[in-house]
Design a protein around this nucleic acid. Structure first.
Lengths: 210, 210, 210, 210
DNA sequence: CGATAAGCGAGACGGTACGTCCAGTCTTCCA
DNA sequence: TGGAAGACTGGACGTACCGTCTCGCTTATCG
């Protein structure tokens, strides 16, 4: 089972790197809507056709970019479910908060969802971008989902509960605040959220480790 | 205290009506991004300046439009919290599902968030659009929030829980599925969600009415 | 019979002027193929859409430009047909020679037909551009054609000859040399040409004026 | 003096043939401006580099192609100059008319100069293409020029006339109509043209053979 | 009742990005 | 070295929309 022997000039990895670097810089500088393909091309010293050979659309490029940037959020399974979830969700919240500020006047203290909202819209515009986005989240959520499953196995979670629904409650609340209500998502909010969600799931509060 | 007696020709109500009608039709036909102000103007037989005199931006117009369309979702307080919430959330879910289909090929069975996603992005682009959107949701959520409060008062909900956080879990889960994961939001999902959220809030399962 | 009452904002004459001026300058600087619409727009401080509202194509703009530039070549009817034709054709030849040099390195001593050739090609590409070009020439040739007609009436030309065919021979020879063979078109060539064409048309050589 | 003994793989004659065939077909299908090198390459199953190894430019390829297609127009010297010229010019006119139709909707009854105009423009763009074109015409015109010379020698043409100028009048008229005025070039036009040109050149009308 | 103010339809305008197209060059591997 | 494949740079083209502006006209209220 070998590689099918590519013909023709291979794509320049160098170009890939430069494009993504400059695209990133530009996104941070300008934000989603004032991000221009022409400018990426110029700054990456690449022809526009090279851009469009790789990504059929500005939306595609940006989604790919964000997917790449997205930090791996690690999950530790210490046995203390409440703590582990708090840590994980706090990491997510921090990441979202960083995204919210991308490309806007740092001083303006707005409650905008910024890039995340645009990404969500991009996903809504092009079915294939949507697929990418969904894959991204699926991969990312696999770990915390497994965490919940293990917790249920060792009895820290009521048997009837669905990990997926539980996770929807948690992540959903964060995204809802970010995208819809604009309410702040601080560490204490995460704490309260996790507490309230676990309360009803058969978790012995604060004592599972014992 | 009367109206301060405007001078000059008053705005045409007729125009208002025609604009919103045609805008609606166009939004349904085309979806958010291929919705063009020029076309609204032509179809409503109205000058573009008339449009922009009323709404400073395409985003503003569309948000106003959606706000108007948005059905009043009534809340009944039967005393059966679980049931009341299920009804309310199902109504929301149905509405969202309708929005999801707006402006796209009816046959294509996609999982796109459509207009809602674009609205969220519009809110992210213009602070004042964001305010409108947030107000819209605040008004709409006031009722279910009050429902939760009353439930707590009569002891159907543990005293320590926050209605707002509770509601974030419920609505959040729906929007998260719509905007992010694209997972389906059926009646059974709502059922399960409400059950799981209430489980942790000191609600006596299925028996509060007794 | 009144003007049909224009509606909407009238086209800016100012823009027209600036565009044609800058287009002319640019054509002279660069020549036909390195003439760029984008640059005209920038230099005339005009939006590209303003360009394309007036001329649907680069070719259209340039043909219109040349039509405008084209000097009126006056025709004098002194009664000396040979002389009058020589003067007229020499003027044409000079004009063509000027066009030939447009947009190229002045030093390079080439035999290129330059802009004229491109115009001819443009006329071949778009039917409507062709119409403009043909009209241009029809108007321009009306005068010399009339000259020939009058000469025939006063007996200076054989009755059976066609003015049009005669003129084809004259103008044709010039364009043929310019566009096809690249042979030089000097004053003596014009002289010889006119002499030879008239010889066969019943013109009393050099003596009509007597 | 032998060929300097090429090293390496010899050029594929096969490729030559296929390229020119497909280029021809494509030219006929599309016309000059929508003729794309990429497509020739694909259709001839040949690399673009193979194209450019042979012709440095699209214009070069097309000029070469047309030069090759260009039918040899034979000249017969029957002694009847008027007849011989008519035959020759009619052949040219027919060829031009065929070219005019190349690459366009057959139904559209246009008066476009088509490929010929583009060739002329190509010649204007690249000096060396111009050389090729001029050579092409020089070779082609050598025969009729000789015809005129012989006619003068045997007294059928006035001694003072220049064959070259005479030929400019004839060919020029045709090209002028084709490229500039768009007037039709039928058999009767050729007839009239030749008649009028010869009338003034000392040719005994219709009686030289006697 | 005429002056003043604003709304309106029409449509041009500046601005700006998008995505497309194609010419001509370069790189890789294969014959 | 030639050839096939196909990526690359470069750069213009024409399109699409947004939000603004300029006309000439209409419809109100105010003095």
């Amino acid at each position: 089972m070998t590689t099918p022997a590519r013909r023709g000039r291979p794509r320049s990895e160098n170009a890939d790197v430069r494009i993504l670097e400059e695209a990133h810089a530009l996104l941070v500088e300008r934000g989603y809507d004032r991000f221009a393909m022409d400018e990426v091309a110029v700054r990456a010293a690449v022809a526009k056709s090279t851009l469009y050979r790789r990504w059929p659309t500005k939306d595609h490029l940006l989604v790919a970019l964000v997917a790449k940037i997205q930090d791996e959020v690690p999950v530790a399974d210490t046995g203390d479910l409440r703590h582990d979830l708090s840590v994980y969700l706090t990491a997510i919240a921090t990441g979202l908060d960083r995204m919210r500020r991308v490309g806007r006047d740092q001083t303006e203290q707005d409650r905008s969802a910024g890039v995340v909202a645009e990404l969500v819209a991009a996903a809504a515009r092009h079915p294939d971008v949507g697929d990418v986005v969904r894959n991204l989240f699926a991969r990312r959520n696999a770990l915390p989902l497994a965490l919940l499953d293990r917790a249920r196995e060792r009895g820290a979670l009521a048997p009837g509960t669905s990990s997926e629904v539980l996770f929807d409650q948690l992540a959903g609340a964060l995204y809802y605040r970010l995208l819809v209500t604009g309410a702040p998502i601080g560490a204490d909010y995460v704490e309260e959220l996790v507490g309230q969600v676990l309360a009803g799931s058969g978790a012995t509060p604060h004592s599972e480790g014992i």
